[in-house]
Design a binder for these strands. Structure first.
Length: 822
DNA sequence: GGGTGCGGTGTTTTT
DNA sequence: CACCGCACCC
């Protein structure tokens, strides 16, 4: 029988730990595991490193390990802290543990690094002089602030850009270097460094003044908190007896330090103090009166380390045994996900990275199908191949949700989306241009932030003249300097607008806005009973506050009454945001506005994935980490894209790009497609693309080239040859056989060269109310003539299923397809 | 104070 | 190509 503790129940912190009753770990939790997995579940000791190759069942091992700790009564749920890479992974892990235990195990902290830190920081905010309603600034917010600072300091003349300053500040924070630490190491004779220091100092000051933290601060400030307040740290060190970290290869120095602080023993003096404060420590101390450090389990695979650009340090995992002497290491190599052909390709590619521990994935499930390769002339050609192939997989019974398309850069979605829309292929772009990044949504969110955190000047300045109320830059500056001179916040200056001697119209507008914000703030105060009980009872719901704000501020009306046709969509987006807050209120009863803002700030791209959706998923290779699909399309496998141009100059760049390719390959269960284009439009210009060097690292026999780079380059003879296809050796590495050439020349028919370049980007058609019925014959500009076999869908989404005479079966969106009825 | 249009510029991956 | 900043005009 396991006692479940409520995480928010203060008693949970005082509850006696369960008696250790080793040996009761039910075999149920290790049944069906291989010997290595079993060992990873059952090992007990201070430190455990699970080196888990792709698809080796590490999530299974982690969930079973947690369940076994709880079931054997070695730990309460509240003593578990598990760190995952996305919120979605956290939710899944929680569900799986609960399913294993057969009861709710609330009280466990299963979350991302960032979520866990926000939770700690909001709770302990006052220790470090921060408001518990602090705002979390995203990259765009950082950029805005840095832009202002650089402009004020004229730092652009020294070559500083918001992006460069942002990167440098982020890098320092990930190394736990704050302004003063950095100042000590800086070379004050270098004017550039002096200037950077000033930018960094101002940036830090402004975030402080706004009671705001950026993403990197969330981790770094938690570490500073623990280091500066050992008694605060002790609360968490005492509580979390078992810490588990997933994707450990992608932790940066700050995250590593956080884990280090959390696993420290609590010294005897502090234990005594905790005891004096009524916090239960009996039974937790060792012979010396100290509480020993928590046990640490990390899971990772250095071959999948792909976040060096945000400070991930591969040494955290490769030197784990040195950092934690006596650590146990368990190696999981058996793969339960992919076919041997896919694994062989992955093994071959990754073996080209030197300086790695030899590890070979294997499966007992057989070779499976060959990997399919395709080289298009353009990105659209490549996309068309993918769309056709997806349709044929779908006809063969593969659900759309089991198919994913990966790419290196977000810009690559363009061509894919164009073709997918035309092919009436249901798809969803995961990540990319996010809903919350739209200007109107950021505006509405800024209203909420301004209410939740009144000292947030960035949010206030954003909404000051949105919608237009005649408050221009001059008035804004007047308010800002009035605030500074009188040591007021920007918000207080707004309330005092009457005394500023501004025009009556402007003054009225400022006061009206200040009033709306004050009224909204009043809505959020809990009732007397709520305050008494320390809950949010009686406070207005997030959706009610948002509706009040967007109505009373005039934001929604301004969009609705605008003559800009795009504003109609923007108004709908704001209404969609309202709908989202309603969902939030319903799903999180008792949650506060700050809870909502936090959740929005910390959504990861992969969190948007909806398993129930019947759509193909499109995402970057980075977002794909940790996921798996029946069929995977890796696109744009070209020099310059993978490896990316920008990585060439970075130390370790090409090796990291190879790991990215490796991650992509190992996401596939049964079918893997590798595709590329001969030419790719990069910022307007069409550039010649070469096959990626990584393609040749895959043994030839594993790939079935439907159209190889050799075949494609031979067209017209004017294109450069495939990379590394040796001169004087016909076909080179790509095996350009005559038979293929013949087949190829038939495929491309007699179209002139230029047709390939613009066949899709040309005009966006609108066939209006063209009606088609089964039996009709049509002509398509690319596919030629064909017969309509079926029409599905309604209105603008009507889809014609066409059997083309030479191009085979296709689905077309009638409204925009380049077709005519015959 | 607000709107339009020109020209310059950047250009990876993400919590 | 797309976005942003700036200058110009109302």
């Amino acid at each position: 029988m396991t006692l479940i503790l409520d995480p928010d129940d203060p008693a949970g912190w005082r509850e006696a730990p369960p008696a250790i009753d080793a040996g009761t770990t039910g075999s149920r939790l290790t049944d069906g595991l291989n010997p290595e997995q079993r060992e990873a579940v059952e090992y007990r000791g201070p430190a455990l490193l699970i080196v888990a190759g792709a698809g080796s069942g590490k999530t299974r091992v982690l969930t079973h390990r947690i369940a076994s700790l709880i079931e054997s009564r070695e730990a309460w749920p509240s003593q578990i802290l598990a760190i995952t890479f996305t919120n979605k992974a956290a939710a899944e892990m929680r569900e799986r543990v609960q399913a294993l235990l057969g009861e709710s195990a609330s009280g466990m902290w299963i979350s991302t690094f960032h979520s866990a830190c926000v939770r700690i920081l909001r709770r302990e905010a006052e220790s470090i002089g921060l408001s518990s309603t602090f705002t979390i600034y995203d990259s765009a917010d950082q950029r805005t602030i840095l832009k202002r600072i650089i402009k004020e300091l004229d730092a652009d003349t020294m070559g500083f850009t918001p992006a460069s300053a942002q990167a440098k500040i982020s890098k320092l924070k990930n190394e736990l270097a704050d302004v003063e630490t950095h100042a000590r190491n800086a070379n004050m004779n270098d004017p550039q460094e002096v200037m950077f220091l000033e930018i960094f100092r101002q940036y830090t000051r402004r975030l402080r003044a706004a009671s705001a933290l950026d993403f990197d601060d969330l981790i770094a400030e938690t570490v500073y908190l623990f280091r500066a307040f050992p008694k605060v740290a002790a609360l968490y060190q005492r509580r979390f007896r078992h810490i588990l970290v997933d994707e450990y290869q992608d932790t940066n120095h700050a995250q590593y330090s956080l884990i280090h602080e959390l696993t420290r023993p609590v010294p005897r003096e502090i234990v005594d103090e905790l005891d004096a404060h009524g916090i239960l420590v009996r039974g937790m101390t060792d012979g010396s009166g100290a509480i020993p450090g928590a046990s640490l389990t990390v899971v990772g695979d250095s071959d999948q380390s792909i976040y060096a650009f945000r400070g991930a340090d591969i040494r955290n995992i490769s030197e784990f045994e040195r950092d934690f002497p006596g650590a146990k290491v368990v190696l999981l190599e058996q793969n339960y996900r992919s076919t041997q052909n896919i694994l062989s390709a992955a093994n071959a590619v990754i073996s080209n990275n030197f300086d790695r521990k030899e590890k070979k994935l294997w499966t007992a499930d057989g070779d499976g199908d060959k990997i399919v390769g395709y080289t298009g002339y353009t990105a659209h050609d490549e996309a068309q191949f993918i769309a056709d192939e997806i349709e044929s997989l779908h006809r063969a019974g593969v659900a759309y949700r089991d198919i994913a398309v990966f790419y290196r850069t977000n810009a690559q979605t363009r061509a894919l989306e164009e073709i997918f829309v035309r092919s009436a292929l249901p798809y969803r772009v995961v990540g990319g241009t996010k809903f919350y990044e739209r200007a109107e949504i950021k505006d509405a969110m800024a209203y909420l932030i301004a209410v939740a955190n009144p000292v947030d000047e960035l949010a206030l300045r954003r909404i000051l003249n949105t919608p237009k109320r005649g408050i221009g830059p001059a008035t804004e500056t007047a308010l800002a300097s009035f605030a500074e001179q009188n040591e007021l916040s920007f918000r207080q200056a707004m309330r005092a607008a009457d005394g500023l001697g501004l025009g009556p119209k402007v003054t009225g507008a400022i006061s009206a806005l200040a009033n709306v914000l004050d009224e909204a703030a009043a809505m959020l105060v809990p009732s007397a009973e709520g305050l008494e009980a320390g809950t949010n009872a009686g406070a207005a719901k997030v959706s009610d506050v948002l509706v009040f704000l967007v109505e009373r501020s005039g934001l929604l009306d301004a969009l609705r009454n605008s003559r800009d046709p795009q504003d109609e969509t923007r108004a709908e987006n704001v209404e969609e945001l309202v709908a989202q807050t309603r969902d939030f209120d319903r799903e999180n009863p008792g949650a506060t506005l700050v809870d909502f803002l936090t959740q929005v700030s910390l959504v990861a791209a992969a969190d948007e994935l909806d398993d129930a959706s019947g759509t193909v998923s499109l995402m970057t290779l980075h977002t794909a980490k940790g996921l798996e699909y029946h069929a995977v399309f890796l696109t744009g496998i070209e020099e310059g894209l993978l490896p990316h141009q920008m990585s060439a100059s970075e130390p370790g760049g090409p090796a990291e790009e190879r790991r990215l390719f490796y991650v992509g390959i190992t996401r596939a269960r049964k079918r893997l497609y590798l595709s590329l284009a001969m030419s790719r439009a990069q910022f307007g210009e069409v550039a010649v693309a070469m096959p990626s060097r990584y393609l040749q690292e895959i043994p030839e026999g594993l790939i079935d080239w439907r159209q190889s780079p050799g075949m494609a380059t031979s067209r017209g003879g004017t294109q450069p040859r495939a990379l590394n296809a040796r001169r004087g050796e016909p076909g080179g590495a790509w095996g350009t056989r005559d038979r293929d050439l013949e087949r190829f020349s038939v495929t491309r028919s007699d179209k002139p060269k230029t047709e390939w370049a613009n066949r899709v980007t040309g005009t966006v058609r609108d066939n209006g109310d063209l009606t088609l019925a089964p039996g009709d014959r049509i002509r398509h500009t690319d596919f030629g003539e064909g017969k309509v076999t079926q029409v599905t869908g309604e209105g603008t989404k009507r889809i014609a299923h066409v059997s083309f005479d030479t191009a085979g079966q296709k689905k077309l969106l009638i409204k925009i397809a380049p077709i005519e009825k015959l």
